[in-house]
C-alpha cells in the first residue's frame, strides 16, 4: 500500500516538475485542510477563522479549519511532518518560537524545525510587559528598581515554559541585570485573572492583551522594533535602552517537497487574505507581517539566534 502511494506520488511529482504550467493552472481543485495545532478560541484559531472566507474567495475552493491540539503544538507538527502529503492541500499553522524551542529542549519532539516549508509568516504579536492599573509601577524603570532591591520577589506571569513570554523575560533580566521569578501559565487566558487579582506583580504577555485590557492594565514596554499602532503611547524596550525584540510569529507551512508553484499560489492567497483582515487585526494589537519565501526562512534564522543562546543557557543549568 505504502509503495503504491509513494510511486503515485513520484509520478505526480514527475508530472508536476516536467509540465508545471499545465498542472499548476489547476491548483487548487479540491478543498484544503488547514490544521491549527491549538485549541479553538485562541489567537491562531481566531486568525484562521478570519482568513478562511478570504482564502476561499481567492482560491475558489473550500478551506476547512480543523484543530489538533496537544503538546504545545508538537502533536500536530510531528504528525504533519510524518504523514501530510506534499500537494498543497494540507496546510498547518506554525509558530515561532514554538517550532524553534521544542525540538531543542525536548528529548524527542517528534519533528524538526526545518522539517516543513513555511509558506508565510503573516503576523507578529510582540511581547509586552504589563502590570495592573493600580500597581505601584508607573514606568519600566520603577519595575527594574523594585527588582534590583528585592531579587526574585517580582513575579512575572506568562504563557508557558520556553515560550516567547518566558524567553523574553529571561532576556529582559539579562539586559537589565535583575532577577525576577517567571511563573508559567497554560496559555495567555489564565494569566489575565492572576494579574487582575494581584497574584502576580506583572506579566510578560502579548500586545493584544495590552489592547484588550487597556482599562485594567498598564503596559510598561513592548518588545517590538517600533511602537505598535494600537498602542501609540507605549515605549519599546529599545527606546528605553534594552535591546530586546521578540514575540510570537504566526504563519503557515506545507510539507517539504511541495512544488514551488503551489507554495507560491498559497503565499499569494495568504497575502491577499492578510491584507483583507489587516484592519481588524491591527486594532486588536497585532503587527502584520508579509514574510514569504526566503524572508520566511531568514526570520526563523534570526529568531533562532535571538532565543538560541537563552535556550542553551537554560539547558546547561538543568
Amino acid at each position: 500500500m505504502k509503495l503504491l502511494t509513494k510511486s503515485t506520488l513520484l509520478a505526480v511529482l514527475a508530472v508536476v516538475l516536467v509540465i508545471p504550467g499545465i498542472s499548476m493552472a489547476e491548483f487548487p481543485e479540491k478543498p484544503i485542510t488547514y490544521t491549527i495545532p491549538f485549541n479553538p478560541g485562541g489567537e491562531s484559531d481566531i486568525t484562521a477563522r478570519l482568513q478562511e472566507p478570504e482564502l476561499e474567495k481567492y482560491l475558489g475552493v473550500a478551506v476547512n479549519v480543523t484543530h489538533k491540539p496537544g503538546g504545545g503544538g508538537a502533536v500536530a507538527w510531528s504528525e504533519f511532518q510524518r504523514t501530510a502529503k506534499p500537494d498543497g492541500y494540507s496546510v498547518v499553522g506554525c509558530n515561532i518560537p514554538h517550532i524553534i524551542g521544542q525540538p531543542m529542549i525536548r528529548k524527542d519532539a517528534g519533528y524538526e524545525t526545518d522539517g516543513m516549508k513555511v509558506v508565510m509568516w503573516f503576523h507578529f504579536t510582540p511581547n509586552a510587559l504589563v502590570v495592573s492599573k493600580d500597581s505601584e509601577f508607573k514606568t519600566l524603570d520603577d519595575f527594574i528598581q523594585f527588582a534590583k532591591k528585592k531579587p526574585y520577589v517580582g513575579t512575572v506571569g506568562g504563557s508557558g515554559t520556553y515560550s516567547a513570554n518566558h524567553l523574553e523575560t529571561i532576556r529582559f533580566m539579562k539586559a537589565a541585570g535583575i532577577e525576577l521569578t517567571y511563573v508559567p501559565y497554560t496559555g495567555t487566558g489564565p494569566v489575565i485573572p492572576a494579574l487582575m487579582g494581584g497574584h502576580l506583580k506583572g506579566a510578560m504577555t502579548y500586545t493584544p492583551v495590552s489592547v484588550n485590557y487597556k482599562d485594567k492594565f498598564r503596559t510598561l514596554a513592548v518588545a517590538a522594533e517600533e511602537r505598535v499602532p494600537a498602542l501609540p503611547d507605549v515605549p519599546t524596550f529599545k527606546e528605553l535602552g534594552y535591546d530586546i525584540v521578540g514575540g510570537a510569529f504566526r504563519g503557515v507551512a506545507v510539507p517539504l517537497g511541495t512544488p514551488q508553484p503551489v507554495v507560491d499560489k498559497l503565499a499569494e492567497a495568504y497575502t491577499a487574505a492578510n491584507k483583507q483582515i489587516a484592519k481588524k487585526q491591527l486594532d486588536l494589537g497585532f503587527v502584520m507581517k508579509y514574510a514569504t519565501g526566503d524572508d520566511a526562512v531568514a526570520l526563523i534564522g534570526t529568531m533562532r539566534k535571538a532565543y538560541g543562546d537563552v535556550l542553551a543557557d537554560i539547558k546547561k543549568k538543568k
Binding site: M1, L4, T5, T33, N64, V65, T66
Partner: peptide, 9 residues
C-alpha cells in the same frame, strides 16, 4: 463538522 476522518487506500 469538517472532521478529516482517517483515509485509507
Amino acid at each position: 463538522l469538517y472532521v478529516p476522518l482517517p483515509e485509507g487506500m
